[in-house]
Design a protein around this nucleic acid. Structure first.
Length: 151
DNA sequence: GCCAACGTTGGC
DNA sequence: GCCAACGTTGGC
């Protein structure tokens, strides 16, 4: 019996927003080109919950929840020369970038702003609130996730 | 638009 | 393997 893990992914809403996910229901989380973030994507299990965060907005914050619906997917954009995420060093035989498919669960009635998160949690509890944190995929401890869901 | 933080690249 | 230069992220 494995516990549900919680994660957080960032997205700029003018690139891909929670309403885009709500419309499409599922999406492959492609385009991540940071090794630390990729390693977290590789750890994700079906059924894990994913907080959806809007960055580069005023204000920024968590806007909803998704669920991991399929894991260990080779990011298709790494092989596509037309894609801005094309990686010429990646091959079909030895792909570098794996990701997951996520499924829409809900949009929160109101955004949980970064400001609120900073008030409630220390950087040790929640990496997201650490100054200068640029990681776009990160784990959220279960106890902290519960508190976020109850805000 | 500014700029701090920080990951990546490449010369040596 | 070091580290300066550079590019990107993302809050403000």
């Amino acid at each position: 019996m494995s516990e549900t893990n919680y994660w957080l992914v960032k997205s700029e809403p003018n690139t891909y927003s929670i309403s885009d996910l709500q419309r499409e229901q599922v999406t492959i989380w492609d385009g991540v080109r940071n090794y630390q973030a990729r390693n977290f994507l590789r750890e994700m299990q079906p059924g894990d919950r994913v907080f959806f965060y809007h960055s580069n907005t005023m204000p920024p914050g968590i806007v909803g929840l998704a669920e991991v619906s399929s894991t260990n997917i080779d990011d298709p954009t790494q092989f596509d020369p037309q894609s801005k995420y094309y990686d010429p060093k990646s091959t079909i035989a030895a792909p570098r970038w794996q990701t997951v498919q996520i499924k829409f669960l809900e949009t929160f009635p109101q955004m949980i702003t970064l400001e609120t998160l900073k008030q409630k949690f220390t950087p040790e509890e929640l990496q997201l609130v650490k100054t200068g944190n640029r990681l776009s995929v990160m784990p959220v401890a279960g106890a902290i996730a519960e508190k976020i869901l109850n805000l």
